[in-house]
């Protein structure tokens, strides 16, 4: 079964095409990296999947259903820069928000929800920070809190927008290990990622985008000089990045 089926998805921002005829089928139970140069439309792609921005498509199905039927089974983790970190909210209450979708309107979280949020916080190793305000954490810790919130959503499909940007090494390890565990539990995870050097290590499959699908498949088939040249216009970009980080 496919977790994501997309047929000819296009997004237009004020007369510029951000995405054009993106078609891809992603099998469930995979950890997928979405890569591509700056401005390739990586974040736009996952936002358009969730219909968070206006998009046209012949056909989109997530988890075998239309988006509005599948929303409650999907967790979306926005870019860290999209959040107001001065917001007066404690870590544990931020994770508790993950329980909101299943509560529906008007109902309030109870003790069980709080205990569950606490357990999710423990899975990302952030229990001791439960009573901190979210802005008092490092970038990596903030990202782990948001991952805990996604865990609290108990989703079958997770969409993460640049979760490794500005993240320390410990947090990066915690996050990738947890994503792998979730994958092993049968969940599908799609990660927008810009660091090519670790892409082969981290992901089962890669979707190489540059306004449209350049290539999709196993990392070894995608991270070839030829594909990278098509997407980035410069085959050395990948090699230079790989060297710089090794």
């Amino acid at each position: 079964m496919y977790a994501v089926e997309v047929d000819r998805l296009s997004v237009t921002y004020f007369e510029t095409r951000a995405l054009e005829d993106v078609s891809v089928n992603i099998s469930s139970g995979q950890l997928v990296g979405v890569i591509g140069p700056n401005g390739a439309g990586k974040s736009t792609f996952i936002k358009a999947l969730m219909q968070l921005i206006p998009a046209q498509a012949k056909h989109i199905k997530l988890l075998g259903q239309t988006i509005d039927d599948s929303r409650s089974h999907i967790a979306y983790v926005p870019q860290r820069s999209a959040i107001d970190w001065d917001f007066p909210i404690l870590v544990r209450d931020a994770v508790l928000i993950g329980c909101y979708p299943k509560l529906g309107l008007l109902k309030r979280p109870n003790k069980q929800h709080r205990a569950f949020a606490q357990a999710c916080l423990e899975r990302v190793g952030m229990t001791e920070f439960a009573d901190r305000q979210i802005g008092e954490l490092s970038g990596g810790q903030q990202q782990r809190v948001f991952l805990a919130r996604a865990l609290a959503q108990e989703a079958d499909l997770l969409l993460l927008d640049e979760p490794f940007v500005g993240v320390d090494i410990v947090s990066e390890r915690v996050i990738i290990n947890l994503l792998r565990t979730l994958r092993d539990e049968g969940k599908t995870i799609i990660v927008v990622h810009h660091d090519l050097s670790k892409a082969a290590d981290y992901f089962d499959e890669l979707l190489l985008l540059n306004r449209t699908v350049v290539a999709y498949g196993a990392p070894d088939d995608i991270l070839t000089a030829k594909q990278i040249e098509i997407a980035y216009g410069n085959p050395l970009a990948f090699l230079q990045k790989a060297e710089a980080s090794s």
Binding site: Y76, F87, I89, I97, P101, P109, Q153
Partner: peptide, 22 residues
């Protein structure tokens, strides 16, 4: 009081709120 949860999540993370269908 009734919509506290919805006011909180749409103020803090409107994208997440929209993503789950609020």
């Amino acid at each position: 009081y009734l919509f506290y949860k919805e006011l909180l999540v749409t103020s803090f993370d409107p994208t997440m709120a929209a993503a789950y269908g609020l």
